[in-house]
């Protein structure tokens, strides 16, 4: 024998609530320098592992493969190649966006890394995998040291 179960769903009770959480993330040692270069100089930087001959973008202070400390910082330019992309028609809640947004994984040329970012100044139907794109920065006075200091990537003319 066991206790009777609820058969009327109106008898099930609930307690509503939310997780009151607020976060402040430090950029860290590598992140601080990476975003400072973007903000002040409009430059994308990476760190190089000379043992493994890899260039990390975004930069890290260590090589994940050989675990050596990385201290060689390089300017990697602003151009990259679209590795893959998607077109978003709905926002995070599933509501329809006014304007579809193209998000791409962009491998920065000459490096082993890349950035996830938006594609702009392009017709949707023209965006292709393998396409060459370059970073478009916000005006210096609007930059605040975040990944959004890059407005988007646009096709290289």
């Amino acid at each position: 024998m066991s206790i009777e179960k609820i058969s009327d769903p109106r008898q099930v009770r609930h307690w509503p609530g939310h997780m009151e959480a607020d976060y402040i993330y430090t950029h860290g040692i590598a992140g601080e320098r990476f975003f400072k270069e973007i903000k002040e100089n409009g430059r994308i930087t990476g760190t190089r592992c000379k043992h493994c001959n890899l260039v990390y973008v975004p930069p890290r202070i260590y090589c994940e493969r050989c675990f050596e400390k990385l201290e060689e910082w390089i300017d990697v330019g602003t151009k990259g190649t679209i590795q893959t992309f998607t077109v978003a028609y709905v926002d995070i809640d599933g509501s329809k966006l006014k304007q579809p947004t193209t998000y791409a994984m962009i491998k920065i040329n000459g490096t082993n890394g890349g950035l996830l970012h938006k594609i702009g100044e392009a017709n949707l139907k023209d965006v292709k995998i393998g396409m060459q794109v370059e970073a478009v920065f916000k005006p210096k006075e609007e930059r605040e040291g975040s990944v959004n200091d890059i407005k988007h990537f646009k096709p290289v003319k």
Partner: peptide, 9 residues
């Protein structure tokens, strides 16, 4: 004074 990113889930 230190660059940070903020997020409220």
């Amino acid at each position: 004074k230190v660059p940070t990113a903020r997020w409220r889930p």
